[in-house]
Amino acid sequence: MTAEPSVSASTSGPCLIVQVSGEMDYANAPFFRHRLAQETTRGQSSVVLDLSAVPFCDSAGLDALLYARRQAESAGTLLALARVQPKLQRMLAMTRVDTLLPIYGTTAQAEAELTTSNEL
């Protein structure tokens, strides 16, 4: 049995760090679509999704990430992923989603890069 999906956010300077946990699958995709859209449109200039606690992601979960990207883009928010598990990172590379959403090894790296991008 897996833990319930959750999304929690904390502000770190100009960035919003969003901790995502649980399986991003067909059953949980509506929850993640809704919650990630809320977080990416809060008015922050940058949002980093920390995916270190996401053990599994299927196509519905991938769609939730792409939906969050579209919502962030519409709100003028930069969105990045951090601490992505190897299996999910392979999926993002195979589907070329990694060309749409930058991926960083740590949230600090993502935050530093997004902060620099916002200053340009």
Rank of each mutant, 00 (worst) to 15 (best):
residue 1 M to Q: 07
residue 3 A to L: 12
residue 5 P to R: 11
residue 6 S to R: 13
residue 13 G to Q: 00
residue 13 G to T: 05
residue 17 I to Y: 02
residue 19 Q to P: 00
residue 21 S to H: 12
residue 22 G to L: 01
residue 23 E to K: 11
residue 24 M to P: 02
residue 25 D to W: 12
residue 25 D to A: 09
residue 27 A to D: 12
residue 31 F to H: 10
residue 34 H to A: 07
residue 37 A to C: 10
residue 38 Q to M: 11
residue 38 Q to V: 15
residue 39 E to C: 10
residue 39 E to Y: 07
residue 41 T to M: 08
residue 42 R to M: 13
residue 47 V to D: 04
residue 48 V to P: 01
residue 48 V to E: 00
residue 49 L to C: 06
residue 49 L to D: 09
residue 50 D to C: 08
residue 53 A to G: 07
residue 54 V to H: 03
residue 54 V to W: 04
residue 56 F to G: 03
residue 56 F to E: 03
residue 59 S to A: 12
residue 59 S to H: 08
residue 59 S to W: 04
residue 62 L to F: 02
residue 63 D to C: 10
residue 64 A to P: 02
residue 66 L to I: 13
residue 67 Y to H: 15
residue 68 A to N: 12
residue 69 R to L: 15
residue 69 R to K: 14
residue 71 Q to W: 02
residue 72 A to M: 07
residue 73 E to A: 15
residue 74 S to Q: 15
residue 75 A to T: 09
residue 75 A to N: 10
residue 76 G to D: 12
residue 76 G to M: 10
residue 79 L to P: 05
residue 80 A to Y: 11
residue 81 L to E: 02
residue 82 A to N: 00
residue 82 A to Y: 03
residue 84 V to L: 06
residue 90 R to P: 00
residue 91 M to R: 06
residue 92 L to P: 12
residue 93 A to K: 14
residue 93 A to L: 01
residue 94 M to V: 10
residue 95 T to D: 01
residue 96 R to D: 13
residue 96 R to T: 13
residue 99 T to E: 12
residue 100 L to C: 09
residue 100 L to Q: 15
residue 101 L to V: 05
residue 102 P to D: 02
residue 102 P to S: 11
residue 102 P to I: 04
residue 104 Y to G: 12
residue 107 T to K: 06
residue 107 T to M: 05
residue 107 T to S: 09
residue 107 T to Q: 05
residue 110 A to C: 09
residue 110 A to L: 01
residue 112 A to M: 11
residue 113 E to Q: 15
residue 115 T to S: 13
residue 119 E to R: 15
residue 120 L to D: 11
